[in-house]
Design a protein around this nucleic acid. Structure first.
Lengths: 218, 218
DNA sequence: ATAAGTCTGTTGGATTTCCAACATAATAGG
DNA sequence: CCTATTATGTTGGAAATCCAACAGACTTAT
């Protein structure tokens, strides 16, 4: 267990909190570690959430399916990131699915316990809540960014806005994205083949270079 | 001032807090009330935010403009709701604009002060932070809902998903929305005239009835 | 090494949206 | 009450997307 906690000590949720402190809090927060295999469903639409997750290792995707089966990727969860906290705190059932796209290990924490300072002398609660506020706010900003991409009217504009944002996040005109073509199309809400065609155009027009998941804006 | 505070006593931010308690906290939170006229800009893209707002009266819209001038409405702010808190807590400049669409009165509160319990005996801080956690989580869910609408591939599907959500929120097949046609198009990320045409089709096919902003799903 | 499966790019036709222009209805102001 | 303005609906052609199908490159498993 301690070994697992070492892995997540740099997560934003634990900012300002030591592994020892976390370890002593785990009982209080009803911490549980679970494992999931690649392609396994971690959480499905309609489920009630009382614990949110902190990804220790692996990779998850938060996705939506419409009644036609079209898939939309809301976001990706990488190690050290948390998920499910929004639904936990508003006490609504999840409207999204969460899929493991790699073998994954997750620490689940009780959301109610976390936001209610207990009487056991867990003085770290205050810090945890502040961290949580920061993380959720940040997710809010990320969702707004995604909306900015999706609100573009053409596939070309969606691509350009997305790639520009990635470039800014990486502080470089050259960067690698974690989506393959199908996933990128699902994230932007467009058709894969049309997107591929548009990427070709952008390459031909000398606006960018790309090779697999590596892009360079010119 | 006390008169204004009475108006917002039912806001979610002040859940569990009395007007008197709020009044005593105002200095601590550096509360300031400002007025804006219809069509005035409350906050513009790129601005740094240190105080978030609580709308006392009027109506605001959070909007994005792309470089072609296309407008996207992210959400509407009605009295008692807060705005700007996400950017305040992640300490990023705003990527959105906030416009007053009616004459409005806003209470601004210092975000840093709010999330950091002070030593003046303001015991309500804890409650405020918990309320904030709930509100931001809820916004997160709302943004996800908007993404669900926008991720639909056709105008028709976007309309149907949106109207269904509104119907659920109102607990009735019959409901009134706060958007006019242009605003609805801006919210869904589609063209107004095409949307109008699609609405006509839906009416003709007997799927819904509508008259101005009043809709009825059949 | 081979075969099976996956990922990416290409293409053409059907469908849908976008855009601009106009008609009519509803609203606001003098 | 009349006029000016705004909101909504309609239409046709241009543009873009979607869809299905396929080819080639790359990866994985046996």
């Amino acid at each position: 267990m301690l070994n697992e906690l070492e892995k997540i000590k740099d997560s934003e949720l634990l900012n300002g909190i030591t592994v020892e402190e976390l370890s002593s809090m785990l009982g209080c927060l009803r911490g549980v570690i679970k494992k999931y295999q690649k392609d396994e469903l971690v959480l499905s639409e309609g489920e009630k959430i009382e614990k949110f997750g902190l990804l220790i290792e692996g990779r998850l995707r938060i996705v939506l399916y419409d009644y036609l089966g079209n898939k939309t990727i809301i976001s990706e969860i990488k190690p050290n990131q948390i998920f499910g906290e929004a639904f936990a705190y508003v006490d609504k059932v999840s409207s999204t699915n969460i899929e493991a796209i790699e073998d994954s290990k997750i620490l689940f924490l009780d959301s109610e316990k976390l936001s209610t300072p207990c009487n056991n002398g867990c003085s770290f609660h205050k810090q945890l809540v502040k961290n949580l506020l920061y993380i959720i706010s940040n997710k809010n900003v990320n969702l707004t960014e995604k909306i900015e991409c999706m609100s573009q009217r053409t596939t070309r504009e969606k691509l350009l806005i997305f790639l520009n944002m990635e470039s800014i996040k990486n502080n470089s005109k050259e960067f690698t994205i974690s989506f393959d073509r199908q996933a990128l199309a699902d994230y932007l809400g467009v058709e894969r083949s049309a997107m591929s065609a548009e990427l070709s155009k952008l390459r031909n027009e000398g606006i960018l270079e790309s090779e697999k998941n590596k892009f360079k804006l010119l």
